[in-house]
Design a protein around this nucleic acid. Structure first.
Length: 472
RNA sequence: GCCCCGAUAGCUCAAUGGUAGAGCGAGCGGCUGUUAACCGCUAGGUUCCAGGUUCGAGCCCUGGUCGGGGCGCCA
């Protein structure tokens, strides 16, 4: 008999002989017809398990089948039949059930057949994908990742693998994890008493990357449209439901493009992946809609259909100052918005994603392109930055048009107290055939959070890495 | 890093300073083409750890560990 996936079995033709392999979700017994058991089996290929009907006349019924517990692994041979019961259209009339693996102690099986809190399931992350929620998250995560690659591929972007280890100490996007093969108990010293990194693996200080942006800009300035999709590391002591020490980031970079092109790209990408997700993972999304965040499917559909709202920072400040809402922190032009302010804009005022653009220069990174004076009626200099805020998650995307003018870039590097020589290859891009270009970083886990309604980012990545959290 | 909250049965939680309980899960039995099944019985506890106060501490005090929420940093 052919082994087929439960996803296919559930939409198969009655009468088909088949074998399925998976794990027991539940077992219910009945004394009818001389005894029989209903065994729900899942194999992760779709949201629903399939119901196996095992009759009492099967050779191993009393010894094995009637003793199956949640978590046992089984192989089932049988015939697909129309179900006599409610709740499923087809089921498997078993002709043979082989128990592949028992559950050692059903009383202490960590993911027994009952509701578990997400906090608890985080402690048994190696088993939590056996639950409805985490199985669905895993499938959605996969589908989103594929959709992102397909989106870029269809638009002639090239996928670039930027380095994980970076030997330049100059990325400037936060605390970095150091990478070293030196013996920490016996560090080589310089004559001045510091650590002699000449003795280290790379003969210099090295770190895990906090962004592939500077590297991918080089490919952008030759291949025109590129993106990265890889792991990113931040050694920040962040204890929130939307930060990880290790996360995945998508960073497209487009040449001959300005901030408007950048925002359009982000909008198109978001719409593409949402549409793809709602089509391909309708079963899982129905679950998130029912059990995790009511109405999320409709809200996502609305986002996929409406144009992205762009809002200059200067206008956002005005809205916040005039809205009459009580904030803990006062809103004033020139400071970064607090999360309460971002929340107000996206969750209460607009009730949809909002892309804030043209931020004050003094609160943004050196590589962001300086706008002409007076852009949006701003009182001070602004840069062509863009933060896409979404309800529930906050900042989903952060990006900008890059400063392509060497003299302006050099001035910015200097103003921020950075060392020009550290950026020699980055500056070369502006010396040799510079072009206006732009890009953004999309936090992949935040995207998964946004589309599923999962509240904690640690529940949308298989094995979360956060301060004091590296189990598994 | 800062502020707040929490830790009791496999899980989720109760318990005025005075014999530690329930629901779910699990085991056994009953009933039933079952499906959040239902009914009955049973088992299950170093009350996070180390000290302290007290005749007596799950409860009060001190220190620690772990977890959660909020804020900051950002994606």
């Amino acid at each position: 008999m052919a082994w087929i996936k439960i996803r296919d079995a559930l939409r198969g033709e009655p009468g088909t002989e088949l074998t399925i392999k998976g794990w027991v979700r539940t077992r219910r017994d009945s004394k009818a017809d001389g005894g029989l058991s209903f065994v729900a089996v899942h194999d992760g290929t779709c949201f629903d398990p399939i119901q196996v009907v095992a009759r009492g006349d099967l050779a191993n019924y009393a010894d094995e089948i009637a003793r199956l517990n949640t978590g046992c692994s089984v192989e089932v041979d049988g015939v697909l039949v129309a179900s006599q019961g409610k709740g499923q259209s087809v089921e498997i009339q078993a002709t043979g059930v082989r128990v592949v693996g028992w559950v050692e102690d059903p009383d202490t099986y960590p993911v027994s057949n009952k509701r578990h809190s997400f906090e608890y399931l985080r402690e048994v992350a190696h088993l939590r994908t056996r639950t409805n929620t985490f199985g669905a998250v895993a499938r959605v995560r996969h589908t989103l990742a594929c959709a992102i690659h397909r989106f870029f591929d269809e638009r002639d972007f090239f996928y670039v693998h930027t380095p994980i280890i970076t030997a330049s100490d100059a990325e400037g996007a936060g605390q970095m994890f150091q990478v070293s093969t030196l013996d920490m108990m016996n560090l080589p010293q310089t004559p001045e008493g510091g650590v002699d990194y000449n003795e280290d693996f790379f003969a210099r200080k090295a770190h895990l990357t906090v962004s592939g942006q500077l590297n991918v800009e080089t490919y952008c300035c030759s291949l025109s449209r590129v993106y990265t999709f890889g792991p990113t590391f931040r050694a920040e002591n962040s204890n929130t439901s939307r930060h990880l020490a290790e996360f995945w980031m998508i960073e497209p970079e487009i040449a001959f493009a300005d901030l408007g092109d950048n925002a359009r790209l982000a909008d198109e990408m978001l719409k593409f992946v949402i549409d793809d997700l709602l089509t391909r993972r309708a079963d899982d999304m129905k679950f998130f809609d029912d059990r995790i965040e009511k109405g999320i499917v409709d809200r996502l559909r609305a986002v996929a259909e409406a144009p992205l709202r762009l809002l200059p920072y200067t206008d956002a400040v005005k809205i916040l100052q005039e809205c009459g809402q009580k904030f803990e922190y006062r809103v004033q032009w020139g400071t970064d918005l607090q999360s309460e302010h971002e929340r107000y804009l996206t969750e209460l005022h607009f009730k949809q994603p909002v892309a804030l653009i043209n931020y004050p220069k003094k609160i943004k990174a050196f590589y962001m392109r300086e706008n002409d004076p007076g852009t949006d009626g701003a009182p001070e200099a602004t840069v062509a930055a863009m933060d896409l805020l979404v309800p529930g998650v906050g900042e989903l995307i952060g990006g900008s048009q890059r400063e392509e003018r060497l003299d302006v870039l050099d001035r910015r590097i200097e103003e921020m107290g950075l060392v020009k020589e550290d950026y020699w290859w980055y500056r070369d891009l502006r010396r040799y055939g510079t072009v206006p270009h732009a890009g953004y970083g999309l936090g992949f886990e935040r995207l998964v959070q946004y589309v599923t309604g999962m509240q904690n980012i640690r529940d949308v990545i298989p094995f979360p890495r956060a301060p004091r959290q590296a189990e598994f």
